Simulated scan of single mutants.
Amino acid sequence: MTIDPLVLMTDVDQATETLLRAAEEFDDSVIGEPSGLPGWTVGHVLTHLARNAEAYTNLLVWARTEVETPAYASPEARNAAIEAGAGRPLAEQIADLRAAHERFADAAASMPAQAWTFRYPAIVPSAAVVPWARLREVEVHHVDLGRGYTPADWSDAFALRLLREIAGDLPASAPAMVLHPAGADHPLLVGAPSDTAPVIGGPTRSIAAWLAGRADGTDLTVSPDGELPQPARWK
């Protein structure tokens, strides 16, 4: 699915603003409370979102200047920055996230057309994918905050793209299944082709959330009748 990266940046702006408005309604004590991610508090998730915006800014700078600018100095540096910032007061976290997003948006606006075709040696295929990657981070981790925002709040377009991405990224060793989201023109195959693979049906948002590990799949159907397979772990 090809989408103009600048069009996607509009979605990133909107999703980020929705998250920030929600966070502004939190009580400061929420920072130390558990999030939907094992071992991470709400503060960890907010800090990660800010540092991730900076990481993707680095990738856009790399594409524009062709001077190597890694997303993170190292996995260890990434983890240390999240731990260091997780306990900060809510107001500081919100200001940090807003500023990091604005820098990312400015970097995207500064990209000449040809820079979007820049291909990295690893991480993401090209600069054009970076806005989608950021939108995915904001939408999925907004759910991970565990404060009322759920996959039901995702747009149809986001849920469908996320579903297609996860289905396409899962290894051939993943449990074989056929995904049949409501309203989709074509089913999606996960795992090795099999005549006995169960068909999983339901709303696109629900299937995407289940594959992403953000829902238990209780509103999905299985044909022939049986239990839902255990999906392979996603990020």
Results as ranks from 00 to 15, higher is better:
169 D>N: 14
157 A>P: 05
166 I>M: 01
165 E>V: 07
201 G>C: 14
166 I>G: 01
148 G>I: 02
158 F>R: 00
201 G>Q: 10
145 L>V: 00
137 E>A: 02
176 A>F: 04
170 L>K: 00
152 A>W: 10
168 G>S: 06
149 Y>C: 07
152 A>P: 13
183 G>S: 06
193 P>A: 03
151 P>M: 07
188 L>Q: 05
165 E>H: 12
195 D>G: 10
147 R>V: 00
166 I>R: 00
203 P>F: 12
151 P>S: 08
161 R>I: 03
186 H>T: 14
136 R>Q: 08
190 V>T: 04
200 I>L: 07
139 E>R: 10
150 T>W: 13
189 L>N: 12
191 G>P: 06
148 G>P: 08
174 A>E: 02
202 G>Y: 06
167 A>S: 10
140 V>N: 00
196 T>N: 13
144 D>V: 05
160 L>T: 00
165 E>R: 12
201 G>H: 10
203 P>V: 15
175 P>A: 05
150 T>V: 13
183 G>F: 06
153 D>F: 03
138 V>M: 07
144 D>T: 04
164 R>P: 04
162 L>N: 10
137 E>G: 00
195 D>C: 02
202 G>K: 01
192 A>H: 14
142 H>V: 01
159 A>G: 09
157 A>M: 14
203 P>Q: 14
169 D>T: 15
179 L>V: 13
163 L>A: 03
140 V>T: 11
203 P>H: 15
197 A>H: 11
153 D>H: 13
153 D>M: 11
198 P>C: 06
145 L>F: 05
198 P>N: 04
203 P>S: 15
193 P>C: 00
149 Y>I: 08
196 T>D: 15
141 H>I: 11
192 A>V: 13
152 A>Y: 11
194 S>F: 05
158 F>V: 01
199 V>Q: 09
164 R>E: 12
162 L>C: 07
136 R>I: 01
180 H>Q: 15
195 D>I: 05
198 P>A: 09
152 A>Q: 14
147 R>F: 07
150 T>D: 08
164 R>G: 09
164 R>T: 04
197 A>R: 09
136 R>P: 00
152 A>V: 13
159 A>C: 12
195 D>K: 11
170 L>F: 04
165 E>G: 09
198 P>Y: 01
172 A>T: 15
182 A>W: 12
145 L>Y: 06
149 Y>G: 00
149 Y>T: 05
144 D>A: 06
147 R>N: 07
153 D>C: 10
160 L>R: 05
199 V>F: 12
180 H>F: 14
178 V>C: 10
176 A>K: 10
162 L>W: 08
171 P>T: 11
198 P>T: 03
177 M>W: 01
191 G>S: 03
136 R>D: 01
